[in-house]
Amino acid sequence: MELKELIQQLNLGVRSARGHLEREVTGGYASDLLSDVLAHAQEANLWITLQVHQNIVAVASMKNLAGIVLVNGREPEQETVEKAEAENIVIMVSAMPTFELVGKLYSLGIPGMER
């Protein structure tokens, strides 16, 4: 499923790299620990997190993730947005907490592990 489809279905706000919404999402990874994401997230995963500082962009870029969704109404810091624009990382926001957002993504067919 493409990012733009999820953005539309779940009413996500887009905060960076608007030109890259055709990116395909193959699965999801939810974590607020950067080291955990570095170790376990898979390429083309959509990353769900509460973390807003600029290090998230580096992590997403390094793991070649499909995008980042900040939950619970969090907004990215200015430096984070700038970095994301430069690295073409799509940052999205949602008012929902992790559990609900993941629940809805899961019902839309985004898996949390390889099947």
């Binding site: 990874y29 974590s31 992790t98 993941v102 629940g103 993504l105 899961y106 019902s107 949390g112 592990m113």
Partner: peptide, 13 residues
């Protein structure tokens, strides 16, 4: 053994 995303997804479902 499930990751966070899968756990939330299953329980929500």
């Amino acid at each position: 053994p499930l990751p966070m995303f899968e756990s939330c997804g299953r329980l929500y479902q």
